[in-house]
């Protein structure tokens, strides 16, 4: 049988939301809420702030659902980008540029074990291999920024490196990553 499971398909639910279909946003929230809230918590390390970020993100999702283009990417990635941006905006508003020694940082693994969790899907596998080929601190900086929402200054404090060095490393790491994934 062809694929006719809109309940399980975030892209279809986004179409439904764009057309004002009652219940579509709730179904999307039920299906994706825990995944997206987990991302916001990882960035903000504060459940109340993460709830604020997810609240703002869901309102954006509701009003921008019509802009999602299934040809340009996965719906799950589109949703994640909106939630990450909402969480990062909040983190910035909370004064992220100050280097901190946040003791709760690093509760979740960001190193080797985290990479193991990258799904076996081909795209994830390639990203994992390319990240593994980077220098360890370079890789750690990229993961701390992307998964945990750390600023350059916070990464520098955590890795005990000068700010300029961290900025240059991350930039170089991204260029290598792009080359490796190409």
């Amino acid at each position: 049988m062809p694929d006719t499971q809109p309940g399980a398909d975030a892209a279809l639910l986004l179409r439904g939301i764009a057309a004002g279909e009652a219940g579509a946003l709730r179904r999307l929230y039920d299906a994706q809420g825990a995944r997206l809230f987990g991302m916001a918590v990882a960035i903000l390390r504060d459940r109340d702030a993460a709830a604020d970020a997810l609240h703002d993100a869901v309102l954006k999702i509701a009003s921008r659902a019509g802009q999602f283009d299934p040809l340009r990417g996965e719906a799950s990635a589109w949703l994640a980008a909106i939630v990450r941006n909402a969480a990062l905006d909040l983190a910035r508003a909370r004064g992220r540029e100050t280097p901190t020694d946040d003791p709760t940082l690093g509760d979740s693994p960001v190193e080797a074990e985290a990479l193991e969790r990258l799904a076996a899907a081909q795209q994830s596998g390639r990203l994992r291999d390319c990240l593994a080929a980077l220098e360890a601190r370079n890789r750690e900086g990229i993961l701390l920024a992307f998964v945990h929402g750390l600023s350059h200054a916070q990464i520098a404090a955590r890795l005990e490196l000068p700010l300029g060095t961290v900025k240059a490393w991350i930039r170089r790491g991204l260029v290598r990553l792009k080359g490796c994934l190409a």
Binding site: F37, G73, A77, R117, L118, V147
Partner: peptide
């Protein structure tokens, strides 16, 4: 970078 977002463990809101 999309696959990295799912390194964050899911949590019920």
């Amino acid at each position: 970078l999309a696959p990295l977002a799912d390194l964050a463990p899911p949590q019920a809101p």
